[in-house]
């Protein structure tokens, strides 16, 4: 009888791999060519979210700049909120096709709703956040609160 064992992802089971060498080769080739696609991970958990737009966070002396790639997302479908030091970007990327029965030849991108939550290092001034959407890139400039800014105290040498 089996006790409770750790769940293992089936696709990486060694016995299954060895069963068909051609399938194994195919899989390795597929993985090789998919290497620079984000959001195409092999994660299969029910609650795993593979939709996660790539994001950069840069800390500057007096502000924090968040940039997020959101191609095809309309400005009005975005919902950005800050509570405390947690930034949440929610949105929906609508599917582009107009007709219901469209025949796809290739589909690499995703559509649907997405959400990203990040905690920010310094406390930012939520009232002064500036959000700009340009060419499918969201750029948030969040000025730091006065007390969080790096201060320079002049010391006079006597």
């Amino acid at each position: 009888m089996n006790g409770l064992t750790r769940w293992r992802r089936k696709t990486t089971e060694p016995t299954e791999w060895a069963a068909d060498p051609f399938e194994r080769l195919q899989r390795e080739i597929n993985r090789l060519f998919d290497f620079d696609r984000w959001g195409w991970d092999e994660t299969t958990g029910i609650f795993d979210r593979t939709i996660s737009p790539p994001m950069d966070i840069v800390e500057k002396p007096d502000s924090i700049v968040v940039t997020c790639d959101l191609p095809g997302v309309d400005k009005k479908d975005l919902d950005i909120s800050i509570s405390g030091n947690v930034l949440t970007i929610k949105g929906e990327k609508k599917e582009e096709k107009e007709e219901k029965e469209t025949q796809y030849y290739r589909k690499e991108s995703w559509s649907g709703s997405f959400q990203r939550t990040v905690s920010l290092p310094n406390t930012v001034d939520a009232d002064k956040v500036e959000a700009v959407m340009k060419d499918g890139v969201l750029r948030l400039t969040m000025p730091k609160k006065e007390e969080a800014k790096r201060k320079q105290i002049p010391v006079s040498v006597k």
Partner: peptide
């Protein structure tokens, strides 16, 4: 467009 030129990257995914 080029990325941020100044500052420290806390997260870099792009």
């Amino acid at each position: 467009e080029s990325l941020e030129s100044e500052g420290e990257f806390l997260l870099r995914e792009r």
